[in-house]
């Protein structure tokens, strides 16, 4: 292989003289984590709302929930990011649009919204599945002891449902981390973007991308381990979520 390997490159200064290439990758990692957490917050909140709506007795709620899921699930993430970043500010009234476009964190915010809503449709599907997996008796028991619909959800259904779907939610969170990478197309300097720019300046293509790959591997391993620990602590003996 006629390629000049240089693993020492990580300790070289970047052209912007703000630190080493390693430091630049680490700052990319920070952005990746921050973006994943912010997007996950949106995904979790919106996903829960929509997921719960789809289990309500009201038919309009089910319809709205289904429409929401279909909309965000059937358009590629990249297209959704472009719409949040390029299209939506154009459709807003003049000054507001310009104000949004000139936000310094514009790309980050667009990526957060795009990724958050995209993932929320997947979270919603999981939540619905979790609630529907509970024995019907649970909901009836709630009604029987005089709880309102809201109380039934709050005290009976949701605590059980979230435990059941904890493992799939963990994997959706891991997907959220991976799906931060397409944000580089709208100018977010996350980990893959940092690796790409390291490659451009240092010409060390494979060192840059393998380092980024290794960081993603470690990140997903750490998240998986932490989630397993949380899952164990949350487990209720006798329920399928806990074994």
């Amino acid at each position: 292989m006629n390629y000049n390997w240089n693993w020492g490159i990580f300790w070289d200064q970047t052209p912007d003289a703000t630190g080493t290439y390693f430091g630049s990758l680490m700052s990319g990692l920070q952005v990746t984590i921050l973006l994943a957490l912010c997007a996950w917050f949106i995904a979790f909140v919106m996903g829960s709302l929509i997921g719960i709506m789809r289990t309500l007795p009201a038919r309009w709620a089910v319809f709205v929930g289904n429409a929401y899921i279909e909309m965000f699930r059937n358009i590629p993430l990249l297209v959704q990011l472009f719409i949040w970043f390029f299209v939506i500010p154009e459709l807003l009234p003049g000054d507001l649009g310009i104000w949004i476009k000139q936000l310094r964190n514009g790309p980050f915010i667009a990526a957060m919204l795009g990724l958050g809503f995209y993932m929320s449709s997947r979270v919603a599907a999981q939540i619905t599945a979790g609630i529907n997996a509970l024995p019907k008796g649970q909901r009836m028991a709630g009604t029987a002891i005089g709880l309102t619909t809201w109380q039934t959800y709050r005290y009976i259904l949701l605590p059980l449902a979230y435990r059941i779907i904890f493992p799939p939610l963990t994997s959706e969170f891991l997907n959220t981390i991976k799906n931060t990478a397409p944000a580089l197309t709208i100018g977010v300097l996350e980990l893959t973007a940092r690796a790409r720019s390291m490659q451009e300046f240092s010409f060390q293509v494979f060192e840059a991308f393998s380092a980024a790959a290794a960081i993603y591997l470690v990140l997903s391993a750490v998240v998986t381990i932490v989630m397993r620990m949380i899952e164990k602590r949350l487990a209720i003996p006798g329920f399928s979520g806990g074994k």
Binding site: D16, T18, T185, A193
Partner: peptide, 17 residues
């Protein structure tokens, strides 16, 4: 990026494809 660092301009550099 070099000018940004050398002259301390605090420019937000956005990379495009």
């Amino acid at each position: 990026t070099e000018a940004n660092a050398a002259r301390n301009l605090g420019i937000n550099v956005i990379p495009a494809k």
